[in-house]
Amino acid sequence: MIQRSYGKSAALTAGMAALALVAGCGGQASDERDPGAGGDEIQSIEEAAIEEGQLTLYASAGESQIEAMAEKFMDDYPEISVDYFRAAGTALFNRFATEAESGSVTADVFMPTVQPSFVEENAEWFVELGPDEVPALAEWPEEFQDEYTFEIAVEEVVAIYNTETVQSAPASWEDVLDEQYQGRIVLVDPESSPGYMSWYSIMQDRFGDEFLTGLAELDPVWVDTGAVGAQQVAAGSHDISLPNYPSHAVALIGQGAPIEMVTDLDPTQGITTSVALTANAPNPNAAKLFANWLTTQSAYEAVCADGVYSATVEGTDCLPLASNFVEPVWEVPGERQEEIVELLGR
């Protein structure tokens, strides 16, 4: 778990064009920064946020993504300093719950990448969202917003393969059951995280028990993280790793590793970056401003700079959202989990 604080005092460069991502954002060259949709309403929020001068984020995304967002926001708003606390899902939830139960909430914005149901299950700790709180939500895709959260980005499940040992990359999930991968496939343990368990559950629903038993019959090597799977494929000890994520591949590819990703497989699950505003936030206006700013092109330049994330809206330079995207299944019943593990021969 890491906590860092950043502060900037450099003057904002004037004259940059702002690209609108939602109706009402404008999108024309301006001498003023673009906080996003909202007109006079967001201007009032902006003034109050600058008066607060502080913002604290609690998030579980990769540290590089959080840092990029914090630094870009402070580039756009040098009057507001940003602190953040980053931890994996369960640790993040436990930290926030402890603070909320004691009445000492530190976070202004809460951004989980797994189990966004934590927010709805503890609704008293969060703000019900709408255009009054985040003006851009008036035009945000309905499938990517709920009563207490909205989603800005997706890291989609991919298959990672070695380009030197695999002659033809799989064109479907069922293709990975090919005998060429016998003893050459790396699978991530479904019990290592809810995201991976969700993927196996979705595969079982789509292709039946035979898909899971087919994976088991390939005599896979099991690992606890996609990062380890990607490294084994990059080293050439195995041909393919799944389920995996782009964040485990892009750095290796940049270093010249002989690996590629198979994307847009049907179905494609994705880990979503959700955004919630905390009740009794120390800086409620800064929270609203940041949430609205997350819908702008400026924010997406930071979120998607490393080539890992897809945006939940069109008109960005992020990776395109998979045509077969499906939401994760966060609440897989215990009996179902045991069944999945047994079918996989674990």
Rank of each mutant, 00 (worst) to 15 (best):
I45V: 04
A70V: 07
L343F: 00
D34Q: 12
A100S: 01
I240G: 09
A234K: 06
M203K: 09
L343N: 01
V82Q: 10
N324W: 06
D239W: 10
V22W: 07
A70L: 08
F96T: 02
A171I: 02
T163W: 03
V127Q: 13
W330Q: 10
R33G: 11
L177I: 03
E32Q: 13
I50V: 15
G89S: 14
D76H: 09
E101C: 02
G254C: 11
T295L: 15
P194M: 12
L12V: 15
T278I: 05
P220Q: 09
D219Y: 10
M69D: 09
D146Y: 00
A107E: 04
E143P: 03
A20R: 10
D40I: 10
R95Y: 02
P112Y: 07
T295F: 03
V221M: 11
W125I: 09
E133S: 13
D178K: 02
E342Q: 13
T272N: 07
T106K: 10
A11Y: 03
V127P: 14
T106S: 09
K72Q: 08
L321T: 04
G89E: 07
A10Q: 08
S247A: 14
T263E: 14
D83V: 07
E147A: 15
I152W: 03
A23H: 11
I152C: 05
D189G: 01
G254P: 06
T56G: 05
P131L: 10
N283C: 11
V158Q: 06
A287V: 01
A159L: 13
A37L: 01
A291C: 07
N285K: 11
L212M: 00
M261T: 11
T13H: 08
V221D: 08
E191Y: 12
P190F: 02
Y148D: 03
Q204Y: 10
G24T: 12
E339T: 00
I202T: 15
E121C: 00
S192G: 01
M69W: 02
N324S: 15
L212T: 13
A279K: 08
P284D: 08
T268K: 10
L215H: 14
A281V: 08
V262R: 08
T149E: 08
V250C: 03
L177A: 00
H238P: 07
D189C: 00
A234H: 08
T263Y: 13
